[in-house]
Design a protein around this nucleic acid. Structure first.
Lengths: 181, 181
DNA sequence: AAAAATATGTCAACATGGCTGACATAAATT
DNA sequence: AATTTATGTCAGCCATGTTGACATATTTTT
């Protein structure tokens, strides 16, 4: 497979410089732009998760704990099943993390009132404090980033991010992230 | 623990409903928006990585292999040290993945011409094919997402993503992702 | 009332991909 | 000649995911 227009072997070995380019110039330029976007997403996401990672390390938690604390914080009283749906992991995976977060007093379970099979999840005060600690730097980072783009930048950013979702996931994600005031 | 109405502490204890709100209405709305953005980033990134994950699973590779193939593809002849810098993992972690990728014929090492201590990394043809397979769906996804936003959307999106980076990382990331045509 | 389905928990074994620490080798630099 | 650098490797640990099997309590269906 001859690499793409420019990244790969091309520049390094000079081969593409000699052979006529299979891919027209404009298409190659677009590809380059898209790959830059892909990498930007990779690096930005990495930095985006770095602040909470630092805090989590202090207290001996990992990202899995973070996700649990976050989504329980955002969805107080969420059932285990619903949390599994959001996280898309197995209940055995969740169990370990959940146990630790509960043992350390950040989260409590309450038997569902209507359906007593359910164990509804709530943050304790300590849990809410932890969540705030974790979310604060991310919120600041996102606030600054959105502010740094021109007017309409936030809307455009959201549109793009939303379009990155699988089409099938969009309604569900909308449900998950949008909370009524 | 009392559930919460919406965000964090507010409804959590119910106290805020009685006491005059510490956080003005507008600020609370902004917080909500920012948290939605945080979650959008989380879900979008998850879907963004899902296509390659499927392909990788078929061939018994993981994301670590993907990252190696990708960044070697984008930076032919990259040294091990430079790759470690990009990936920000230890050489022992990289070693395993690198060995597998090489053993299976996707990547070769060449002793550096100037500095013969270096093992410069290149994709083989099979490696370039794999890279193309992995990057194609992501490129399409990003292409569609960027196209879905209005004119100027791409620029705004990039600005926001770039601003999400740690300030200290920005020059380096710029170096890594931008390739001359 | 009995049977089936649902929500959750748990045990055990395993894979992946990070990590640390220690040490080895070859080549370049001082 | 001594030191530094680029890389490799061994050994063991940890976090977080997986599958499969099975248990319990509760609700729903028959």
């Amino acid at each position: 497979m001859q690499p793409a227009g420019k990244g790969l072997f091309s520049a390094e070995k000079g081969a593409d410089r000699l052979a006529p380019v299979a891919r027209p110039r404009a298409a190659a330029a677009e590809e380059e732009r898209l790959i830059e976007a892909i990498e930007l997403l990779f690096f930005s996401y990495r930095d985006f998760t770095s602040d909470p990672d630092t805090i989590l390390e202090e207290i001996g938690f990992g990202r899995a704990h973070h996700r649990v604390v976050h989504f329980v914080g955002r969805n107080p009283g969420i059932t285990v099943a619903a949390l599994l749906d959001i996280l898309r992991i197995t209940k055995q995976s969740l169990a370990r993390v959940l146990r630790e977060v509960i043992e350390r007093g950040y989260l409590v379970q309450q038997t569902g009132e209507k359906d007593r099979r359910q164990r509804r999840l709530y943050l304790t005060e300590a849990g809410a404090e932890l969540w705030e600690r974790l979310v604060a730097p991310q919120r600041e980072r996102v606030r600054n980033a959105l502010a740094a783009s021109g007017p309409g930048g936030e809307t455009a950013w959201r549109e793009v991010m939303f379009s990155l979702l699988d089409e099938t996931q969009r309604p569900e994600v909308e449900k998950i992230i949008i909370k009524e005031p």
